[in-house]
Computed example of a mutant assay.
Amino acid sequence: MSQINQQVKPFKATAYHNGKFIEVSDESLKGKWSVVFFYPADFTFVCPTELGDLADNYAAFQKLGVEIYSVSTDTHFTHKAWHDSSETIGKIHYPMIGDPTGTISRNFDVMIEEAGLADRGTFVIDPEGRIQIVEINAGGIGRDASELLRKVKAAQYVASHPGEVCPAKWKEGDATLAPSLDLVGKI
C-alpha cells in the first residue's frame, strides 16, 4: 500500500541532539516540514557519507523550515558515541533518533526483519504529518542531499500553489505546469 498522503503512525523515541538526549514523537513532526532519513547502522561505510552530506546541507534545509531526523535501529547512546568519535558524524546538528525496538522502522515499512536493520528510506513529511515523498534505496546505494533538497522545494511549492505541478528536473524559479485538458498529448 502506498504511504503517500498517509499520516505518520504514532511513535515515541529518544534522540541524540546537540549534546543532549531528547524525546521525539510523531507529534514532533507536525507544524513544519520534516525529513525522516532511515539508514542501516552507525559505524558503517555508506551511512556516514549520507549523514555527513545531510549535515553539510543542513542550513539549506533549515532555511526552508525543514527539520531533519536521522533514524537507525541503534540506540541513542550509540549515536552519541559515534558523534563523539567520528569527524564526519561530529558535524551533525540534527536529531539522531534511536530505534532499537524497530517500531519506527516498521511504522515506515523499512525494517529488514532478518537483519534487525532499516533500509535506506527517505520520507518527506508535510506540516500536517502526512508523507509527501518516499524513496527507498538498496543498501549499497547512497543518497544525495542536494537532490533531496530539490524535491523538498518542489513539495513545498506544490503545497503552496494549488493547481500547479512541478515537471521533471524542476528547480526553484523554473516554470511549472497547470494540468488541464488542453495539455493532454502536448507535452
Rank of each mutant, 00 (worst) to 15 (best):
Q3Y: 12
N5H: 09
Y16D: 07
N18L: 04
K20W: 01
F21W: 04
I22D: 07
I22K: 09
V24C: 11
G31L: 12
W33I: 05
W33R: 11
F37G: 08
A41K: 08
F43D: 12
P48K: 08
P48L: 06
T49E: 08
E50G: 10
D56E: 14
N57K: 13
N57C: 07
Y58N: 13
A59F: 03
Q62Y: 05
G65Y: 02
V66N: 05
E67A: 14
I68A: 02
Y69R: 06
S72G: 01
T78H: 05
H79D: 04
H83N: 14
H83I: 07
S85E: 11
S85M: 08
E87Y: 00
T88H: 00
T88W: 04
I92R: 09
H93K: 15
H93A: 13
H93P: 01
G98D: 04
T103K: 15
I104Y: 09
N107Q: 03
D109Q: 14
D109M: 11
I112E: 09
R120P: 06
R120F: 05
D126N: 15
P127T: 05
P127A: 12
Q132T: 09
Q132C: 05
I133S: 08
E135G: 07
E135A: 13
N137H: 13
A138P: 12
G142C: 10
A145H: 07
E147A: 11
K151V: 15
V152G: 00
V152F: 08
V152R: 00
E172K: 10
G173M: 05
A175G: 06
A175F: 03
P179C: 01
P179I: 01
L181Y: 13
L181P: 01
V184D: 02
K186C: 00
